[in-house]
Design a protein around this nucleic acid. Sequence first.
DNA 1: TTGTAAGCGTTATCAA
DNA 2: TTGATAACGCTTACAA
Lengths: 322, 322
Amino acid sequence: MTVSRALREPARVSEKTRAHIQAVIEKLGYTPDPAAQALAAGRTNVIGVIVPSVTNNVFADVMRGIYNSSEGTRWQIQLGNSRYSPIQEERLVRTFLNQRPAGLILAGIDQSDETKALLRQSTCRMVQVMEIGENPFDLMIGFSHFDGARSATRHLIEMGYRRPGFLGARLDPRTQRRLDGFRDILREEGLLDTNRIVTTPQPSTVTLGGLLMADLLSRAPDTDAILCNNDDLALGALFECQRRGLSVPFDFGICGFNDLEMMAAANPAITSVRTHRLEMGERAFRMLADALEGHPPDEPVVDLGFEIIQRESTRRGRHSAL
Amino acid sequence: MTVSRALREPARVSEKTRAHIQAVIEKLGYTPDPAAQALAAGRTNVIGVIVPSVTNNVFADVMRGIYNSSEGTRWQIQLGNSRYSPIQEERLVRTFLNQRPAGLILAGIDQSDETKALLRQSTCRMVQVMEIGENPFDLMIGFSHFDGARSATRHLIEMGYRRPGFLGARLDPRTQRRLDGFRDILREEGLLDTNRIVTTPQPSTVTLGGLLMADLLSRAPDTDAILCNNDDLALGALFECQRRGLSVPFDFGICGFNDLEMMAAANPAITSVRTHRLEMGERAFRMLADALEGHPPDEPVVDLGFEIIQRESTRRGRHSAL
DNA sequence: TTGTAAGCGTTATCAA
DNA sequence: TTGATAACGCTTACAA
């Protein structure tokens, strides 16, 4: 039919016919059947998104960004949850790829070798989010978790803390790289004491932050600051300090990671590493959509960076001067 | 082909043929094309989920529940975000319905009249989550926000607070019903003072909790407790109390709503109304999936209830006795 | 600029 | 128990 053309290439249909078709469409409330489109065209308007968690604040923000910029476009988001399992991720990639998606958005750079092979074989455009690294499959947008942790650790040292520790939960690859950054700086400064590194594979919660903090203090009571793998842990650690009568930032400095909204509202406000999660999601989608329309970005890898947001929880200098 | 039959009704294919087909499928790595299935069968395996927000912790938990129980089933979740807009919701319902979904999961009971009409015309099975109410479209699972707020308010009174206020953000219908419950009890007790009700249409954050708290205290300084529409506000209010040197629970009682994990970790731990969000999502999906397999629940409406989790933030009695 | 014809991969119906 | 045949609603290629 000419209808199909009127919808996809309006320019190639005469003004009159187009108007007529439009009118009839309105009257009938016609909508193209996506299944028939997919079958006939051999491609779908589905963009698959594979993340390790739908709960985690971090991925929730990225997803929100993706949904934000996908609304009103012709692209349909289809979500897959790998639950931090490379096996699950591989299964999801297979499932998605079988459905001839228009594009794929993947979290991270730590796919299994099989997954990598699947992805490299595929011709569909894709973008990796959350991190930057070597050999992107296609597009990539994120930041260096290693550098973020390095900067935060350096900040603690600059604020006068000399015995900083690290609290980490859910040891996914990004947590690992943050821990590596922490270690890197402390080794440089000759301040590394592995007793002050407390981690657990459990998913991160505020409660867990308190528990890890207690654990740290029993192992290394003279620890004077912590870098937390994320803000939940930092908040839990703050509450634990309050319960123990430890003054933050004077007795103890706390730095979070991600800069969730509540960090600024806490008492004292908590220093954190701001990451641009919403923007990451929004831009990831747009890069992909643009590429699908034939306008790939000039640079396939985008580094969104991070910022150390200094707040009271590490402002020891000022407090000790009071 | 017999292949199609072997896949869908294995019983109707001979043992031998079935085995042969199975072998070939394995060898070729064959997967049915969902688009072709949808087109030929006139139905999809898509379950549409329409929520007002993907960010909000509450819906995030419900969605997680849905994803949890949908994994490993033949049903595909497709998410739509109405952004708290009835117009958007109607658009989404139209879009979904046009794709002949297997089922629908909808948040709430406050659809526009047009949306209601669309939904009632549709033959597809659906379940409303988050609330319970009259005239479900089909299935329904949730709890009474009105009763939850009533119980929480009564709890404040029982703990000895006589001038309780209410903090509310994002005045969606559920917030409204919670506020109604709060008003209801206070009117009963002759303790209602509308000056102590502070609300804003802004989305709820921890920071906003602090601001609303400040607002409340400037309007009605002798307020001695608050029921917050949600836990973010409660946490923000707690921090604001800390900054003002108000002792919680002695000078001031705080009760949240939803019982997010961090409520138990706070200092003092915050009383909250526990709602069963994860379970709501999980069961909503299962009810729907079961109904689609021909096993609808005995009772179409499931009330999941709520619990008042009493913690230190409202334990005035005990503290004043110390 | 418009229309015709074939086919996308599956399911449903019916006949063998 | 199996296999032919005709849809399903669209897109693509080509003809008018």
